[in-house]
């Protein structure tokens, strides 16, 4: 039941995305039927080019949305986190002005350089989910901080689980 509703949401989202972007950024065909939606069930990420960065000097507002959390060494969006992303998508669809920077973060373990890539994949997975929920891809930027910006300073799973996250910064 839940998954059918999910497919319906995605289908509506795809229709919106296509309608609003004038087909500039076609959703991936493989993602259409929910088999690999935005890194939800697999490790797929949106495989098309990124939009140009926002110009400088625009105001940024962080902390308006709840962070999305990830498993260790994973960019897959967990079932438990979808509701948070739906709220973000809903907000962006209802507020057509401005854009958003999706930040990807990692815990302190592992290679600094690899974590930059992992953080980017987390941000890209979120971006993909939002695009497939009907947000114009041109309004979204990704930014990986790797392990450089932890929110919890401890060195145990309690802190690590809070640091493996995606955050949302509104840009006006």
């Amino acid at each position: 039941m839940h998954s059918r509703r999910w497919v319906a949401v995605v289908m509506v989202g795809l229709v919106c995305a296509v309608a609003f972007t004038g087909c500039k950024r076609k959703p991936r065909k493989g993602a259409m039927l929910g088999d690999n939606v935005g890194g939800v069930t697999g490790t797929d990420v949106y495989g098309e080019g990124l939009a140009d960065r926002f110009g400088e000097g625009r105001s940024e507002v962080a902390g308006q949305f709840t962070p999305v959390y990830f498993d260790y060494d994973s960019a897959q969006i967990n079932e438990s986190e979808r509701g948070k992303l739906d709220q973000v998508a809903d907000y962006l669809r209802r507020n057509a002005a401005g854009g958003m920077v999706v930040e990807g973060h990692c815990d302190e373990r592992g290679s600094n350089e690899y974590n930059l890539g992992l953080g980017e994949r987390r941000a890209l997975a979120i971006r993909s989910y939002l695009v497939q929920s009907g947000v114009d891809a041109a309004r979204l930027q990704t930014k990986s901080f790797g392990e450089e910006r932890p929110v919890a300073a401890g060195h145990d799973e309690g802190s690590w689980s809070q640091n493996r996250r995606g955050e949302f910064v509104l840009v006006q």
Partner: peptide, 9 residues
């Protein structure tokens, strides 16, 4: 260099 401009690092 590692770039993600084409959608993935």
């Amino acid at each position: 260099v590692v770039l993600s401009k084409d959608g993935s690092p």
